[in-house]
């Protein structure tokens, strides 16, 4: 199949950028979308042009490295699928696909389709952990956890930190990412002790990074490759009010 691509090219953070047209004549429905870009890059290199830079690593939908807007949707048209697992059979011969990087002030552009998501790391560092210095931990079964709670915590813990929620959110809000971690940890008995400081600090950090606020568009849940529910955002707000009440 032949695929037409319009891809955002930008040499560096300060350089001017724009959409450039490409054609991949020898695409194949079994290719992943990233393999399509690989094929295109081989063409470009042979022609002496700069290949298109895009982040990727596991290509299994788990590391969260990949992440681009494909046809206007974060990670492309297939539900619950990171773009590295998106395959060309989701497209038709002759399609034109527009490819752009995540757009958010808190995700400064590095090059082409690559952005800097370190803001996520700082949000986690602000409180997305349980303080448990190595050693000293009690027996793993000392504290039973109701299966439902453990399963729900796992639902939220599956976040791969890809940033699609931010990219798709009309407000460029990081609420789903932040809430998923807050909910994961607060649902477990080990996490409740630090729950109050955690929610306040992580939320403050999220604001400080320049992400937008959440207006409940729920677009984030729709594009999340792990289908994390905005119920986590409601959960975060309950946790927050709890924290405020007990601190005032």
């Amino acid at each position: 199949m032949t695929i037409h691509l319009r891809i955002w090219r930008q040499a560096g953070p300060e350089a001017p950028g724009g959409l450039v047209d490409y054609i991949v004549p020898d695409a194949n429905e079994h290719m992943s979308f990233l393999e399509l870009l690989d094929v295109l890059n081989e063409q470009l290199i042979k022609k002496g042009e700069d290949p298109i830079e895009f982040d990727n690593d596991c290509r299994e939908g788990i590391c969260g490295s990949c992440g681009i807007m494909v046809g206007g949707t974060a990670h492309g048209p297939q539900r619950r699928t990171a773009v590295c697992q998106l395959h060309m059979r989701s497209f038709k011969d002759g399609d034109t696909i527009i490819v752009e990087p995540w757009r958010a002030a808190a995700f400064p552009l590095v090059k082409d389709l690559v952005v800097d998501r370190s803001a996520f790391d700082r949000i986690i560092a602000a409180g997305g952990y349980i303080s448990a210095t190595t050693g000293g931990a009690p027996d793993a079964n000392a504290l039973p956890v109701a299966k439902e709670k453990a399963d729900e915590a796992m639902d939220y813990a599956t976040c791969i930190g890809c940033g699609a929620c931010v990219a798709a959110c009309p407000n460029a809000s990081a609420s789903l990412f932040t809430a998923a971690k807050i909910a994961h940890l607060a649902l477990l008995p080990q996490g409740v002790l630090e729950a109050q400081g955690r929610v306040i600090n992580m939320v403050d950090q999220m604001a400080a990074e320049g992400f937008g606020d959440c207006s409940n568009h729920a677009e984030c849940e729709a594009v999340c490759p792990k289908g994390i529910s905005i119920a986590s955002i409601a959960f975060m707000r309950r946790e927050y009010m709890k924290a405020i009440r007990s601190s005032s």
Binding site: G135, N141, P144, K147, A150, Q190
Partner: peptide, 22 residues
Amino acid sequence: NNIIDQAVAQGVPFAREYGGLL
């Protein structure tokens, strides 16, 4: 065995049985 204890203390949501045990 210490690894499992450590991971659980960190909040790793291992699969559990209905009784709440791992």
